[in-house]
Amino acid sequence: MLIKLVIIALLLFIIFNLFRAGIIMLRTTNSEVSMSRYLGRRLVISIVLLLLIFLAIAFGLIQPNPTPF
């Protein structure tokens, strides 16, 4: 159950960083924080999330759907 909460929290953090990058992109003035900072964070957290999911499946903490139907 804890691993699922961590996965959901990381997914929400990824979406939050996506919206922050979008807000900075829509601003017309030069901002102090660049858009690539939030997009880079999003990329790193996505990679960490994929590794976490693969490790959780490998250790049996979560189980993938056995039938795709």
Rank of each mutant, 00 (worst) to 15 (best):
T67S: 09
S34C: 08
L10Q: 12
I24C: 02
L50T: 12
T67H: 07
L26K: 06
V6K: 08
L43P: 00
R20M: 06
I7W: 02
L51R: 10
A56T: 04
L39C: 03
L55T: 07
L39V: 13
S46P: 08
I47W: 04
S31P: 02
F54N: 11
L49T: 11
F69I: 07
I8W: 05
L50V: 15
I62N: 12
S31T: 15
L51T: 13
I8F: 07
Q63C: 03
I3R: 01
A56I: 04
L51W: 12
P68R: 05
P68L: 12
T28K: 14
L50K: 08
V6F: 09
A9C: 13
L50F: 14
F19P: 02
M35Q: 03
L50W: 12
I45L: 07
R20A: 03
I24V: 07
R27D: 10
K4R: 10
V48W: 14
F13A: 01
V33I: 13
L2S: 14
N65V: 09
F54K: 10
V33N: 10
M35W: 03
V48G: 14
F19S: 07
G60C: 03
S46W: 06
V48D: 13
F54R: 13
V33K: 06
L18Y: 05
Q63I: 01
V44F: 08
L12A: 12
A9P: 05
F13V: 01
L2A: 11
T28S: 12
A21N: 00
I3L: 10
I15N: 05
L18A: 07
N30Q: 15
F19I: 12
G40E: 02
L61P: 00
S31I: 11
G22N: 12
T28G: 15
L61M: 10
L39K: 01
Q63K: 13
V48I: 15
F19V: 09
R42F: 04
I45R: 02
L61H: 04
N65Y: 06
S31K: 10
L11Y: 11
S31A: 12
N17I: 00
S46K: 04
I24T: 01
F69H: 07
L52T: 11
M25W: 13
T29M: 08
R27P: 00
R27M: 15
L12P: 03
L10V: 08
L18G: 03
A58V: 01
R27V: 14
L2R: 13
F59W: 10
N65I: 11
I24W: 00
F13G: 00
R37W: 10
F16E: 00
P64R: 10
R37Q: 13
I14V: 12
L10K: 09
L11W: 07
R37V: 05
L26V: 00
L43Q: 05
V6A: 09
L49Q: 05
S34P: 11
P64I: 07
F19L: 08
K4H: 14
F54G: 15
I23C: 03
L26C: 04
I14S: 02
L50H: 08
L39A: 02
L49G: 03
R41P: 00
N30P: 03
I14D: 01
T67Q: 07
L18D: 01
V48A: 15
N65A: 14
K4G: 15
